[in-house]
Amino acid sequence: MAADACDRMQRKSCQDEDALLFRKFAGERTSTKGNRGGNQGHYAVTPSGELLASSSNTDPKALAELMKQALEKWAELPREKRLLSKAPDPKSAENWRRMEALYPEDGLALRVVARDQKRERWPDSNLDYAWFRKDEARAFFSAEPTKDAQHEVPSELVRRLARFHLIDNVHALNYTFFPKEAIEKARLTSTVVRVDGDLVSLSFEGESRASMVSPKKIGYAPKLLGRAKYNLKDQKFVSFELVAVGLRWGLGSCNQRHNPAPAPMGIVLTLTGDSPAERLPPAFISRYGW
C-alpha cells in the first residue's frame, strides 16, 4: 500500500522513473461509477505498471470491489508480466526526494493542523508540517533561560511561519502562500515560565497579519498563544504547542474555499509523531531557502 502525490508524476515532462511508471496507468478507470476527472484516485497495479483495477470513487464498497477485481486479474498474469525485468533502483528516488533529506533530525518538526471555527463540510481540517533546524529551534527562547526571561523569536522564523504555515488549507491544499510583502505583522515572544534542572518551560504570545490582493485577495490575522518544554541536556523540545486563531478571508488557489467572507480559523502546531508519514516535507519547503 502506498500513498503519494501525483502532481509531479503526472507531468508529461517529468522523466523520473516513478513518473514514467505512474503515467502508464494514470487517469485510467476500470470502474465506471462515481469517478472524478484527473489522475487522483486509487490504483491497483503490478510492480511493472500493469493496471489491475482503478477508481476514484470514494465509496468503500467501490474500493473493496476494486481490490477484488485486482486480485483476480493478478492471479491470471504470468510472473514476467507482473514484474519489472530489472529490480527498481532505490537510489533513483534521490533525484526527486531531495526535500525529504532535509528533515531536521536534531531540530524541531511540527505537525500543522488547520480548521475553521464553524465546521461546515467534510473534509474540514487539513495538515501539513513545519520544520526548524537545530539552531532555529533553539532560537525560540532566551540564550540564558532564567525564570521570566523574555525573548523575541527571530523575525525571519515568525515570518516563515506566517508565509507558509498560517494559511488556509482547511478544505484542500492551497497552492497560494504569502509573499514577503504580504506580511504586515509577525511577532512571537517567548517567556521562561519555569526551569527545573534541564527542563525549561516556556509560554508563547504573539500575533501575525498577512494580507494580499493579487493574484488572490486573501489574508489571515491570528493571535498566537502557546507553551513548550525544552530539554537543555538533549537540546530538543519535548513538548510544543502553538495555537493561532483569527479571521481568514478570501479564496485560495485550489483550496476548495467557496466563501470569501471573513471567518475565524484556527491553526495548531504540535510535535510530530514518529511514523514515516510524519517525516513528509512541508508543502513549501522549497521556499525555506535551506
Binding site: A2, A3, Y43, M67, P276
Partner: peptide, 27 residues
C-alpha cells in the same frame, strides 16, 4: 502506508505482490 509510490514498487517487486496506490494532488 509506504509514503512514496517508488518504495512500494521496490517492495512489491521483491515480494511479487500487487500495489494499492492512493494518489492525490498534494500528498
Amino acid at each position: 502506508w509506504q509514503t512514496s509510490f517508488w518504495d512500494a514498487v521496490i517492495e512489491a517487486q521483491a515480494k511479487d505482490k500487487p500495489i494499492l496506490l492512493w494518489s492525490m494532488n498534494g500528498h
